[in-house]
Simulated assay, not measured.
Amino acid sequence: MQEHDLSFVRAELVANQPAPRGQKGFGHWLRRNMFATPFDGVLTVLAVLFIAYSLPPLLNWAFIDAQWTGSDRSFCATVAQGGVQPDGWSGACWAFVGAKFQQFLYGRYPIDERWRVALTGVLFVLLIVPLLVPRAPHKALNAILLFVVFPVVAFFLLVGGWFGLEYVETPLWGGLMVTLVLSFVGIAVSLPLGIVLALGRRSQMPVVKMICVIFIETVRGVPLVTVLFMASVMLPLFLPAGVTFDKFLRALIGVALFASAYMAEVVRGGLQAIPKGQYEGADSLGLGYWQKMGLIVLPQALKLVIPGIVNTFIGLFKDTSLVYIIGMFDLLGAVRQNFSDATWASPQTPMTGLVFAGFVFWCFCFGMSRYSIFMERLLDTGHKR
């Protein structure tokens, strides 16, 4: 009887093999991302040519030919080799930014009291960083300190008038401080209020639904400029005689309500994306309305609309520059205000100041965008990798 050949049965897993030479390395990355198709290759070549054409003059303007130090505009009107150019200085005037940097940060806040603004900023960073780090402990306590305790402490520090602190009226506020205060209050108020408005718009109670729909559609139907103008100019006309509100407080309320209307629509989109079975499953467990929303529906809905939420935050951060029209000076307003300083009136001053302001705005917006991507990946439980 002939013996039959036994099939080979592997008793252990095959060791990981290296990727093929053509599927790794910088060349593979270029082929996959830059030259995947002929059209992609053409766009890549055009982009490289554009960068090669525009980058050297930009670097010359921003760094090589720039003036970094000086006390007045005369330093930005002379070249490094000596002499004066007929058409003015060809490089950036960073000396202007250095001379006005304190005003760009604090506006006209009293110099001797600016330590209060710096202390408020340090407290904000110390509280928000652990809240943004996923593995940091005591999130609930951290959130209470940041959103409940910190605003009270910041109010007493920035406004003053108590505990021996000098009173500083809000018209003296300005610069990056105003931008951050408006953004923080707008973000902290718009998200919870937007969630309430979104739930109200999907409510089965006609009165609640109608109120939420009217508010959302009315606010979304007008630009933020109109809201700020109404809050600053028109609102005092409807108040009783002798009753008034601080202009900065009115701007805070207007910005927060405006952002809340847009946030409500973002959250509503997430609520509508949740399958009906999630609602029915929560009902079958005997959960009440707020338990169902807080434990089952909202966590899933908010995770789905993280990009929309952060996009609204970024838009709000940039829209704070519109308070310039009501006589308040945020970072961009403070930069533009200093263009009229005769000491620094030169052809390169406006461009340099605007580039500086744009770079600061970009840093904050880019940071929020990257953190949004990080949170999306962290909370992505749709499939296992």
Rank of each mutant, 00 (worst) to 15 (best):
Q103H: 14
M328L: 15
W362E: 14
A19F: 11
M230I: 13
A80M: 14
A256D: 02
M177D: 03
Q103E: 13
P347D: 04
P57D: 00
I128Y: 08
P275S: 03
L131K: 10
M368F: 06
V9Q: 10
R370G: 12
T343P: 04
A47R: 01
A357Q: 08
L126S: 09
V153K: 00
G160L: 03
Q348E: 09
L123W: 07
L172I: 12
A345C: 04
F26E: 11
I111M: 10
C363S: 15
V129H: 00
V335G: 08
I211S: 00
L295E: 08
G41K: 06
D330N: 12
A52V: 01
N338C: 07
R336M: 03
I195H: 00
P38F: 14
L257K: 04
G88S: 09
W362A: 15
D112G: 05
E217P: 08
F258N: 00
V305W: 02
D65R: 14
M328V: 11
L46S: 10
S260F: 00
C212Q: 05
E265N: 13
V153D: 02
F359K: 15
A334Q: 06
F150T: 01
A188F: 10
L235K: 09
L176Q: 02
L30P: 14
F339E: 00
V84I: 06
L304G: 04
Q85N: 13
A241D: 10
M328C: 13
P223V: 07
L172M: 12
E217A: 10
L316Y: 07
V178Q: 04
V267K: 02
Y262V: 00
V45D: 11
L285A: 10
V213G: 07
T312R: 01
H383W: 11
L302M: 09
I373S: 15
V266C: 05
V222E: 14
R10C: 06
G25V: 15
K139T: 09
V189C: 05
G367L: 08
Q300M: 07
V14K: 13
R10F: 07
P134G: 08
A99D: 04
P275E: 01
Q17M: 10
P240F: 04
F35Y: 11
W173T: 05
E169A: 08
P275M: 04
I253Y: 04
V117E: 06
K24E: 06
P130V: 03
A62I: 03
R268N: 12
V84S: 05
L59T: 04
P137F: 03
G294K: 05
M205A: 12
S54N: 03
L239A: 15
A345V: 02
